[in-house]
Amino acid sequence: MPAGSFNLFDTHSNGCASVDPGASGNVAIIDRGVCTFSQKVANAKAAGAIGVLIINNVAGDPIPMARTAGFDDDLPAVMIGLNEGVALRASGATTASAGATFQEFVTPANKDILASFSSQGPTLVDLAAKPDVTSVGVNVLSSCVETDPIDCGEAPWAFLSGTSMSTPHIAGSAAVLLQLHSDWTPAQIKSALVNRADLVVKDSITGTHDVGPTAQGTGRENLSVAADATTWMDPSAASFGKVTVGHPTSLNITLSNPTGSSQMYAVSVTKFTPDTFGGTVPSVFDAGTLTSGDNRITVPGSVTVPANGSTTLTVTVNSGQPLGTVIQGWIDLNSGSDDLHFAYYAQVGQ
Rank of each mutant, 00 (worst) to 15 (best):
H169R: 04
S302M: 10
A307Y: 07
I150M: 15
Q39L: 13
N318I: 02
N43S: 04
T167D: 03
G309S: 11
G22F: 02
E154F: 11
A115R: 07
T95D: 11
V281E: 11
S191W: 01
G260I: 05
G48R: 05
D148K: 09
D148E: 10
T68M: 10
G92P: 01
P306D: 08
A197H: 01
A155M: 06
A187C: 03
A59W: 10
D151L: 15
S182R: 08
A227F: 07
A174S: 02
S142W: 04
A237P: 02
K242D: 05
P21F: 09
D74Y: 13
V58I: 10
A346W: 03
A115K: 06
A229K: 04
T316V: 09
D198V: 07
N334T: 14
A44M: 00
M1Q: 08
D275K: 05
Y265G: 00
V41Y: 03
G309H: 10
A87D: 08
D31R: 07
I150S: 12
T123K: 09
A237M: 06
P274Y: 10
N139Y: 11
V138K: 07
E146L: 13
N43C: 07
I54E: 09
N195T: 03
P306T: 10
V211G: 03
A100V: 15
A59V: 08
C152F: 06
T276C: 06
N57G: 07
G51D: 10
T163F: 09
Y265S: 02
N83D: 15
V267L: 04
A77H: 06
I63M: 14
L340G: 02
V315Q: 04
S143Q: 10
I55V: 08
A93T: 04
F277K: 02
P274N: 13
V299P: 04
W184G: 00
D210S: 12
Q103T: 15
H12N: 15
R32K: 12
T185R: 03
E221C: 04
P122G: 09
V138E: 15
V136H: 08
V140P: 08
E154M: 11
V201T: 15
I30D: 04
I327E: 01
A287R: 01
G288Y: 09
V27T: 05
S335D: 15
D210Q: 11
L333V: 03
G329Q: 02
A229M: 06
V138N: 03
G162T: 04
V52A: 12
M79P: 00
D332P: 05
G329K: 05
T249W: 04
D10L: 00
Q120T: 15
V326R: 14
D228Q: 14
K190I: 03
Q321P: 01
F9H: 11
V245Q: 13
G349E: 14
S239E: 07
S319C: 07
Y344G: 00
G33L: 00
A3G: 11
S166Y: 10
Y344R: 05
T218R: 05
G70L: 15
A287P: 09
T311Y: 13
N139V: 10
F277N: 01
D234W: 05
